[in-house]
Amino acid sequence: MQRVNMIMAESPGLITICLLGYLLSAECTVFLDHENANKILNRPKRYNSGKLEEFVQGNLERECMEEKCSFEEAREVFENTERTTEFWKQYVDGDQCESNPCLNGGSCKDDINSYECWCPFGFEGKNCELDVTCNIKNGRCEQFCKNSADNKVVCSCTEGYRLAENQKSCEPAVPFPCGRVSVSQTSKLTRAETVFPDVDYVNSTEAETILDNITQSTQSFNDFTRVVGGEDAKPGQFPWQVVLNGKVDAFCGGSIVNEKWIVTAAHCVETGVKITVVAGEHNIEETEHTEQKRNVIRIIPHHNYNAAINKYNHDIALLELDEPLVLNSYVTPICIADKEYTNIFLKFGSGYVSGWGRVFHKGRSALVLQYLRVPLVDRATCLRSTKFTIYNNMFCAGFHEGGRDSCQGDSGGPHVTEVEGTSFLTGIISWGEECAMKGKYGIYTKVSRYVNWIKEKTKLT
């Protein structure tokens, strides 16, 4: 034993070699072989497995989906700052455009905790909710729209109204504003409101030439003092309507412009014939205590009207009353817009006519005020429907199939267009061939041609 100890002390290297040989010859039971080890760690190889990531292109799944990435790591994937920024906006807080917040056709661009709407022409605001041009839906104005110097929408209202708090709607500024039905039992019968379409306001006024200088022999019209197929109006439903009495009662109609003036057809009036105007009328054979009678003290036909040349060209006249009318729910003026808007309103496509005229061709006159909704007829169809001249200051309205029309005794009465609950004068009943005849239409004086003249002559002093 002493000898062994001496050998170990003198030859430590020998001992180490012996131990190493023993270990190498022993069977290893701690580690699995290569094949079995792979069965336990069965993990798919990654895209760049075996390579240094710093030297390969980034992978979106590896960089940002398996674990949260930084902007720089995302930049490695896209290799483009702009594309990385677009991805980053949604990656950080989701897609803010998912709810489609942009209105009126706006395009949404996502941002971090926010979004941006790219608005089409005519709109602005956070969600493109603000109209900035009158060309689109009248700028959301209830009545009139004008573009300011910086191309912003400025709404306005006709006389007797003021802008509401929203700067879009119009509200009454006087007790009985024009064009409004205020009798409670008839307010439910107000005709369907007309909503502004998209309009090209630059070209809204037709490029028409008034044929002022045409000389033409007097034409022989049949029954051209021209509501057939209409309905009984309720008291106060058309408070701007008046009836004219002269040699015979209810020979023509008219509309209240203001307390002192009536507008009617020029062919209705004769110099030297006494005319009485009755406002607030409903049943011409009954006294309903809503009527107001006034005498006409002055007749002003349009300066281009000449019955000797043509009885229905420039067929418009103004009547001055001896005493002002007292405005109330049964006696209310009709609204008159400017030339541009009167023309736009007419193009809405349908209007209402009213009167006490004959209820059928050569038949009896109506006792109760009649009204009828009539569609506008395109000019080409209008011209083809008659052998008589249709001037540019006239328009056609009615039904091709016949059966409904204005008729004798309705002449001078109103053709009105309702705009968001307020009625505007767009025409004056003038003439036609018979009444409600198939293929024939009622012919009306186009008020847009005469609004400046009306307003100039009827100013209240």
Rank of each mutant, 00 (worst) to 15 (best):
R3V: 14
I7D: 05
M8D: 08
P12E: 07
G13C: 11
T16A: 11
I17R: 03
A26D: 02
C28M: 04
H34K: 10
E35K: 08
K45A: 15
R46E: 15
R46V: 13
N48E: 15
S49A: 06
E53P: 08
G58C: 03
K68R: 15
E73F: 06
E76Q: 15
V77H: 15
T81S: 09
W88P: 15
K89C: 04
G94Y: 06
G94E: 11
E98A: 10
S99D: 06
N100I: 04
N104A: 02
N104G: 02
C108Q: 00
K109Y: 05
D110L: 05
W118E: 15
P120M: 06
G122N: 07
C128P: 01
E129M: 02
K137A: 09
C141A: 00
E142C: 02
C145R: 00
V153H: 06
C157E: 01
N166F: 02
E171L: 12
P177N: 01
C178Y: 00
Q185G: 13
S187A: 12
L189R: 11
A192Y: 11
A192K: 11
F196M: 08
P197L: 09
V199L: 07
V199A: 05
Y201V: 13
Y201F: 12
N203H: 10
N203L: 10
T209C: 06
I210S: 14
D212A: 06
D212C: 07
N213D: 07
N213F: 06
T215P: 12
T218L: 10
N222Q: 10
K234W: 11
Q237C: 04
L244D: 00
N245A: 06
D249A: 09
G254I: 00
N258W: 01
K260H: 06
A265C: 03
A266G: 04
G272Y: 06
K274A: 09
V277H: 00
H282P: 06
H282L: 11
T287A: 13
E288G: 06
H289N: 14
T290Y: 10
R294P: 00
N295S: 13
P301V: 11
N304D: 11
A307L: 07
A308Q: 14
I309P: 04
Y312I: 10
N313A: 12
I316V: 09
I316E: 00
L325C: 01
D338V: 03
K347F: 04
G351V: 01
Y352G: 04
Y352E: 03
G355P: 05
W356L: 09
V359H: 13
H361R: 12
R373T: 08
L376C: 02
T381L: 09
T381W: 08
R384F: 05
R384N: 09
T389A: 14
Y391R: 14
N393P: 02
C396T: 01
G398A: 05
E401C: 05
S406L: 13
D410L: 07
S411K: 13
S411I: 14
V419R: 05
V419H: 10
T426Y: 01
I428F: 05
E434V: 10
A436E: 13
K438L: 13
G439T: 10
V447M: 07
V447G: 02
S448A: 14
S448N: 05
Y450V: 01
N452R: 13
W453C: 00
L460V: 04
